[in-house]
Amino acid sequence: MSDLPRRAAAILWKDILSETRTRQGFTAMLSFAALVLFMFSFAIGVDNDLLGRLAGGLLWVAIVFTGTLSLGRTFQNEELAGGTRLLRLYPGDVRAIYLGKLAGNLVVLAALEVVLFPAAAILYQVDFTAQAGPLLLVAVLGTFGFSVIGTFFSALTVHLRARELLLPLLLFPALVPVVLGSVGATEAFLAGDPLGRAGGWLRLLASYDVILFVVCLWIFPVVLEE
């Protein structure tokens, strides 16, 4: 059991190495995210007040769309090299694979958000700095929930022919509490939280994160079984 973090870290490190060797994936993802932000402006129009009010929602939708594309790549290396048989060859508890892949997705999404939040601040003219601390908490909870569910479902769908379609089909309904919680809390904080609603959304996010994390971690070995 004490081996779990070490094995997870080994998988994370392996993925980071193979990802940094060829950075095209991440660069393409960033460009995609920027395009999504532009598309929202094109669809809504250059109404700065309106864009400012919608910024929280638009930002999280951009994160979800871009993140979903990146999730599809979670198990791609192993799948190309020989499917789950290869994954099961990793020594020790298979839960380490889940934790390692989850950490990898967290790193990728965090890197994405580091670029996306300032980009949204510039494009939609919102000021994230006034509430930087609370917003950071929202980002952490939202990103964690997204990764927990996303990593799990990408393991489930990696063998399927139509996985590009099935991953979002399973993922998006499961993300509803994450999206509503993140958007609700972000918008509340951006408005200075006059009605004290942000706390409720944060508690919802945190409890959903914990429940899903426990369930996914517990049941993950079944997904990879032979």
Binding site: P173, V176, P177, W201, Y208, I211
Partner: peptide
Amino acid sequence: VQVPIVYLSVFWW
């Protein structure tokens, strides 16, 4: 597992 929480979140929203 997710459906009751989905309902709760939509309800709050």
